[in-house]
Amino acid sequence: MTKRANIKDILINNGIIILMVVMAIYVSITEPTFRSPNNLINILINMAPRVIIALGVSGCLITKGTDLSAGRMVGLSACIAGTLLQRADYSGKVYPNLGEMNIILVLLICIAVCAVFGLINGLVISYLNVPPFIGTLGMQLIVYGICLVYTNATPLGGYIPQYTSIATGTLIPGFRPTNYLIIIAFIIGLFMYFLYNHTCHGKYMYAIGGNENAAEVSGVNVKRTKVIIYTLAAGMYAIAGYLLGAKAGGASVNLGLSYELDAIAACTIGGVSVNGGIGKISSVVIGVAVFELLKSCLQFLGVDTNAQYIAQGVVIVTAIALDIRKYVAKK
């Protein structure tokens, strides 16, 4: 009896994931190109920047916060990289006198700029006690505004080949599964896994999410931990933005629009609890995978791109309802 109840619970709690898998199987039968290695690798490449953003947001969610500025920071990072990595012979070059810059140096600049905004997010949330929802909502507008002013709202393009090849190049020449984006996302995933499971910071983060007051009483520096989380998250958005710029071969202020919502939704689908304290790296990756599978399936099924938003919205609300259900039932 209890066993059957358990199976039912497992089915309901993982309903979205199961539904997606069923859908993916259905699509791969009706549309054989869906299961072609090429398409699966495309999905992985699309996932890569999304996973990085979601990993950044996951820390905020685990501590019962959120970060609505993620998408705009992704855009800002892509635009900064875009302005600094344009070809010398490109007619629309933003800084015509700027020489060719090192792509790693530019990445570090992007990370540094976004980290400053993340730091401000953390300080505002920790020391001014502004609710994360509001604090990062404000930051979303601020960053967007800065990006508009910085680029004059002009789309960017004409990148140097070293930059764009990050998205197309592979570690093992000719072997697409070793695409740099996939490799980078994988390394960042490993880094975050180590951080979450093998350091004081990770343990403190889960403790704050589990019970902030108890964590404080146990000597956890709650404020500092939160500042680190939001700063680190911003660094992740910067990397993702930088990679997305390379992938698209161009950038505009609208790059990254509403990516924070996708990331939050993906985390929740994967099992990061909006009630805090719970969420693994694998949850985040699974969540993003499910979300990207959904998009790909809908494309293959020929669903109108505009109508796809409706499906995504339904999935997000359902996922959160199922997540909350676990805790309501426990009372």
Binding site: Y204, A207, N211, N275, G276, G277
Partner: peptide
């Protein structure tokens, strides 16, 4: 309210104040 970290393991609850 200020004692247990409810959704965490016993190991985490025991070690949190002395992790360093």
């Amino acid at each position: 309210g200020t004692g247990i970290l409810g959704c965490l393991s016993i190991a985490d609850n025991v070690s949190i104040a002395s992790l360093r």
